[in-house]
Design a binder for these strands. Sequence first.
RNA 1: UGUCCCGUGGUGUAAUUGGCAACACGUCUGAUUCUGGAUCAGAAGAGUUCAGGUUCGAGACCUGACGGGACAACCA
Length: 565
Amino acid sequence: MIENKEPVSRSEPQSFIEQFIAEDIKDGKNGGKIVTRFPPEPNGYLHIGHAKAICLDFGMAKKFGGKCNLRFDDTNPIKEDVEYVDSIKEDIHWLGFDWEEREYYASDYFGKLYDFAVGLIKKNLAYIDDQPADIISSQKGKPEQPGQKSPFRNRSVDENLDLFLRMNNGEFEEGSRVLRAKVDMNSPNMHMRDPIIYRIIKTPHHRTGNKWMVYPMYDFAHGQSDYFEGVTHSLCTLEFEVHRPLYDWFIDQLKTDDYRPRQIEFNRLNLTYTMMSKRKLLELVLEGKVKGWDDPRMPTLCGLRRRGYTPESVKRFVDLIGYTKVEAINDVSLLEHAIREDLNLKAPRVFGVLNPLKVIIKNYPEGEVENVELINNPEDESMGKRLVPFSREVYIEQDDFMETPPNKFFRLAPGMEVRLKGAYIIKCEGFKKDGITGAIEEVYCTYDADTRSGGNTSEKKVKGTLHWVSAQHAVDAEVRLYDRLFIHEDPSGQKDDDYRKFLNPDSLKILTGCKVEPSLGTAKPLEKFQFQRLGYFCVDSDSMETKLVFNRTVSLKDSWAKMNK
RNA sequence: UGUCCCGUGGUGUAAUUGGCAACACGUCUGAUUCUGGAUCAGAAGAGUUCAGGUUCGAGACCUGACGGGACAACCA
């Protein structure tokens, strides 16, 4: 075994988690084994925030030669469904991670958990409380004041055993009784004040049906599940920090040898302009504000996928933001950078004109067509070249022409010259304007036959180069522009819970009458392209009629400013 | 009037465990007949929340402030 496959010096930053794990191995804990787990609750679709956890859980296991389990934390049948189980598995695979045969469910451990609870009762460390939720809650006191003991705290072991059995037999109503661990009502940590560990739920479970009438709470299931699976490092987000003493308390009651799992917390992903609460995302789906969990405006992994993000770009992004204990807000521009970086290498460039403006080259022979050669990807020669037809009438982007241009405008304007990329230099000789609306309808130009790309025999040089599409050859396209993910806060950092307020009706804009290169007529579905200058898109369906732009040309900050005018 | 966690350029992270604060994103400037929001080159921007202390030397260790966050679900 040789350590250091690469001469990576100290330049590679190590997260504190990595250091903790390395220390544990060095100290010989758990026999040097490393097992992690990704533990989603199947109550919604995975979003970009989960990607951060997935990359960590699977990444650490891989880095230290260990394994990572997939475990569904399905202890609350009221909120869970198989639909979510399936989507979660699909999304993890999409990201490129594999749990192999280790697909586990907390519900697989219901039996063991029940036995463990019975064991605690017998040790006089758990009791049945007959009080309603609000009383139990108020007896817990406040964080700064100690709690009061429940009048049922000293029930006999036999009575507790009997009641727990009958709870599971369905003899009592939901909410009428709970099982609580007997820990410490005076603890400054609220989670240690006799936490509820079992409650009655009569809704059928998506995997165990009606087998159980009592279900363990998160705190009574998570650590134990880790223990049952031999997990060594249980990585979770910061809000579980206060749960750790309880996690350890249950492990202490359970463990029989030197092995013990360790919980380590890291910071959750927050993205600027992006609303990530599962609950609110679910509301958007249920209220029909979006087309579904995979609506490209959603920050879900399936939404990002439809939007055109690649798994590599998501992983790259996660890699860039790192893991700390600081509650950070990451800038979406970094996510956008990650996808651009990835696609610049992979996506062929093509011409597309979203807002067409017809240009007529008056001295170009009518009816003549010539094919010009264009490079598919300037960063990757192996992607080859393509031939694009050029003719007398072409479309350019409306933005590429201005009647009265400002100082540094190097595109087309009356009297100005530009190159049509891959073709000729043209000069604007005039234009036609609608008398009423003032809209530019056509632009008239002349071209110089000596200036063809690759064979420019003239001395001409121009500042601007425009992309274009031959009018008679253009493929009509419908292009969807997704401006942003959901916004939940403004750039001043002030949070606003009323996320609906930030739902921009224009966030999905469908442009029809767009003109794209004929070569796109032969593209395969889901192939990704970059419009020269405009952004990236992919062919959305077999119909070939819908093109999907996911990385448009206006920054989020600009959108925000526009929206609030 | 509690317990725990956290304060490093605008943002996110580093700093070989006490030795000249580094990188990425973003921003700005310049170049370019590969549109240029790409690429390349360059620049600006923090003295590490504050005050003490230990030390030859502190972003790191200690004490105390200040600021932010988590915790009072029969959710996870």
